[in-house]
Design a protein around this nucleic acid. Structure first.
Length: 804
RNA sequence: GCGGACGUGGCGGAAUUGGCAGACGCGCCGGUCUUAGGAGCCGGUGGGCAACCAUGCGGGUUCAAGCCCCGCCGUCCGCACCA
């Protein structure tokens, strides 16, 4: 009997509808069952629709979710939309359509596209960050942070994108340019909402030890947090005030021959009357202020600065008077905004000292400070350093820090590169910040009973020319009464950045219907932490860090039961265009998933996305390679033509089946879907060679393939009247002892070179294997007359005869 | 500059972590069927006539190296004056 033609469109639609109607993929409200919470980063529903990059990670974790469901886990594999953000707003500005309407359309399109790929998402729990019932809780979390002094307003220089008319977080500025539009950013003083992520820096750093993130993610987060241990040292000055610095090299204090302050250092103003060259200083400050961050940090820029005339510092160990400079190579925002300069052992200080002819003193032996700063000197010995001379660098650090502490001149100090998070945007399409500015009470939190504070409708979505949010033009909305004293007051008009809604969405999935809390404590206790979270590397220092921070805060106030949100984090590689370059409209190398599904079907698309290469690495799309996946599925369909009865594996296929069950299961868990598919292909080749497949074998095969090709496997299962559905069955088991073939082929090497091959029984002893090898004609001839040195047998692999 | 990852056939990629390099697939070549083949099926496919040579290049350790060690070269990603 020939199997009927496989019609992908009809069959896939049929099963997608069946899954939807039955709700098989809905997580069960059974908090006693073993659970598995599997998460992908919810998409931003852009107008471009789904990209072929999305399904790569969605399919990979879908195979995990589907497999674990068959293994009996109560699986939560949810989906939602991160729908606030600039593109919808920019579209609204151009086309005068409300962003909510655009968002609604885009979500509808994404939903249809995602469903067409047959992902086993729990569609009953969809979260949309722009839904007031959702952002009510985003605002609620913000208010808790405000109440705990983690959300504050600060007058500060911020990154400003003149094109978007918007403040950007440090993380959103790439090479001095706006991450979104590419315009060069400038600095602007503004009163900004900030979140004090730095208060959590230590824990965000340390707790990485407690989670199972891939190493490169941990490393990148650690580098971003930038923890360093050193000392805070106070230098006396001739002006009377002390000048405080931070250094990681207190051991080199004897080599500090001058000091440098950032041009923005507040002491400069205090010293104004004592300085004899104020004009020169002012001029330098002005030119520094005008420069963008990009210009200021440009590589290989020559060191510039101005020496302060009239004020000097005193090195606490040498008691010598040393000059103070201002220079833009010292950052106001790190440490104390001032440094002790040790030109002998710091490259930047060395360069500066050369320009200004300052003394360079060697305090660690071993380098040549005439030619360059000797910085790589952790194992060196101190010289020219008074009571530190002769000590190792390591000991000198301890000794000097103790000395400074004893004299009250300093102490050990830990510093972080991480900065507080600029949390406001002067844009429309975001969560309104639920704060009221009262002339009497100051900043007042909106009562929780008034949440959600809904986004009002506006006529125009453009930010105002002075950089205020378009909400500021809505006087009716802005003018309100102070929730505390009732006096006329004004609402905050800034909105939250896009990162807000995505910082906790995974909690909402646990209990998306809850109107009393962001989620019930029972649901959170059961589902969190997330067992497996996969997402892009580009979110490592943004979303991933931000959401860990929010989660830790929520943990501190008792709103969530775990200190970390994610147990495991993995990351996928990008899918490039056929030309090996990132897909982009302008290059015309974009592949549309709808077309692939239309031409080949969802199962082929899923299979190819998994087969394309190593999941963690980038991989170029190939329109011809995808055909191989299509052919494979056609071969699978045709297995029905050689189906015979039989409820046990046949002798010939028993080992291949046990082996493949083991491999596919392990590979899915290890994100090696590519080799899992290769193993399934190998198995089909073996079946074809055997000429037949029985019921037991086909059932197992369909179960193994189901996570990758869920539609076709269900269809075959049904066509063959195997009873119920694939999804009703347990994941197949394997017997370790049956994975190995009875006989194996081993190589026979002479001096490490393969000379022959032998077929031996799998449990052959070393003696027998070696004896059999020596009995081989070719081998015997080759070793004739030579002196045996060594004979090795590597079980199941090879025999190596070493002769001379 | 610093940090990380990587470098294997014409291509995407495998390789039990020190044990037969090139699994699986694409492409290509040959055959078969066909009025036809951009379909299907069968066979072949790292290079070299060979001995042999082959995992970016040069050394080393080992019975044995794609994998470990030392030194280069190259590509990609992240950070970028963080004291």
């Amino acid at each position: 009997m020939m199997s009927k033609i496989y019609d992908t469109k009809a069959v896939e639609k049929k099963w997608q509808d069946a899954w939807e109607a039955s709700g098989v993929f809905h997580a069960k409200q059974d908090f006693a069952a073993p659970k598995s919470y599997i998460l992908i980063e919810f998409p931003y529903p852009s107008a471009n629709g789904l990209h072929v990059g999305h399904p790569r990670s969605y399919t990979a974790l879908d195979t995990v979710a589907r497999k674990r469901r068959l293994q009996g886990y109560n699986v939560l594999y949810p989906i939602g939309f991160d729908a606030f953000g600039l593109p919808a707003e920019n579209f609204a500005i151009k086309n005068h359509v409300h962003p909510a309407e655009i968002t609604r359309r885009n979500i509808a399109r994404f939903t249809a596209q995602l469903k067409s790929l047959g992902f086993s998402f729990d569609w009953s729990r969809v979260v949309d960050t722009t839904d007031p019932e959702y952002y009510k809780w985003t605002q609620w979390i913000f208010l808790q942070m405000f109440k705990h002094n983690l959300a504050y307003k600060k007058d500060m220089a911020v990154n400003w994108c003149p094109s978007c008319k918007c403040v950007l977080a440090n993380e959103e500025v790439i090479d001095g340019k706006c991450e979104r539009c590419g315009a060069e950013t400038t600095r602007k003083n503004k009163s900004q909402w900030m979140l004090a992520i730095t208060k959590y820096a230590q824990r965000l750093h340390d707790d990485l030890d407690e989670v199972n993130f891939i190493e490169r993610v941990k490393l990148q987060q650690r580098n971003w947090i930038g923890r360093s241990t050193g000392a805070q040292v106070r230098f006396a000055t001739t002006a009377g005030d002390t000048l405080e610095v931070y250094t990681t090299r207190p051991d080199t204090l004897f080599g500090a021959t001058y000091m440098v302050m950032s041009p923005e250092h507040p002491l400069l103003e205090a010293w104004a009357t004592k300085l004899s060259n104020p004009d020169e200083i002012k001029a330098y400050q002005c030119s520094a202020a005008k420069k963008s961050d990009f210009e200021r940090t440009e590589v290989n820029k020559d060191k510039t600065g101005v020496r302060l005339q009239g004020v000097a510092a005193i090195n606490p160990v040498t008691a010598q008077e040393i000059p103070i400079f201002i220079s833009d190579y010292v950052l106001a925002s790190y440490g104390t905004g001032a440094i002790m300069a040790v030109p002998g052992h710091d490259t930047r200080d060395w360069e500066f000292a050369k320009v200004y002819g300052l003394p360079i003193v060697e305090v660690v032996a071993g380098g040549n400070i005439e030619e360059a700063a000797y910085t790589d000197c952790a194992a060196g010995v101190m010289v020219n350093s008074g009571f530190l001379t002769g000590l190792s660098v390591e000991d000198a650090k301890v000794r000097i820090t103790a000395w400074l502490t004893e004299k009250g001149l300093g102490e050990e100090k830990v510093n972080f590169k991480l900065r507080d998070w600029v949390f406001a945007r002067q844009r429309y399409w975001g969560e309104p910040i639920p704060i009221v500015h009262c002339p009497h009470c100051g900043m007042v939190a909106l009562p929780e009973s008034e949440l959600p504070l809904k986004l009002p409708n506006v006529e125009h979505y453009e930010p105002t020319d002075d950089g205020e949010s378009p909400l500021s033009l809505l006087t009716d909305w802005v003018n309100t009464a102070c929730p505390q004293c009732g006096a006329p007051a004004k609402r905050e008009t800034d909105t939250m950045p896009q990162w807000a809604g995505s910082s906790w969405y995974f909690l909402r999935y646990c209990d998306p219907w809850n109107s009393e809390a962001l989620a019930s404590s029972e649901a959170l206790a059961y589902w969190t932490p997330i067992d497996w979270y996969n997402g892009g590397m580009e979110h490592t220092t943004l979303h991933l860090l931000y959401s860990r921070f929010w989660h830790k805060f929520l943990y501190d106030i008792g709103a969530v039961p775990t200190p970390e949100p994610y147990q495991k984090r993995t990351s996928h590689g990008m899918i490039l265009g056929e030309d090996g370059v990132k897909m982009s409209k302008s290059r015309g190398n974009v592949v549309n998933p709808d077309e692939i599904v239309g031409q080949y079907g969802a199962d082929t698309m899923r299979l190819y996305e998994m087969f394309i290469g190593d999941f963690e690495k980038t991989a170029p799309w190939s329109n011809s390679s995808i055909k191989g996946c299509k052919r494979f599925l056609e071969k699978v369909w045709a297995l029905q033509d050689i189906l015979v009865p039989g409820e046990n594996y046949t002798a010939k296929l028993e080992a291949p089946f046990h082996k493949t069950v083991k491999k596919v299961g392990e590979d899915i868990e290890n994100l090696k879907q590519n080799t899992a598919i290769a193993a399934l292909m190998t198995l089909v080749n073996a079946i074809q060679e055997a000429g037949q497949i029985n019921h037991a074998e086909l059932k197992t095969f369909l179960l193994l393939l189901n996570p990758f090709a869920p539609h076709m496997t269900e269809e075959i299962w049904e066509s063959q009247n195997f009873g119920g559905r694939v999804t009703d069955n347990p994941w197949p088991a394997y017997d370790e002892g049956k994975c190995a073939d009875k006989t194996i082929e081993i190589a026979v090497q002479i001096n490490g070179k393969v000379r022959s091959r032998l077929t031996v029984s799998a449990d052959v002893s070393a003696e027998d294997a070696i004896a059999a090898a020596k009995a081989d004609e070719v081998v015997a001839a080759a070793v004739l007359g030579k002196t045996p040195i060594k004979e090795l047998y590597v079980p199941g692999r090879l025999v190596n005869l070493v002769v001379r």
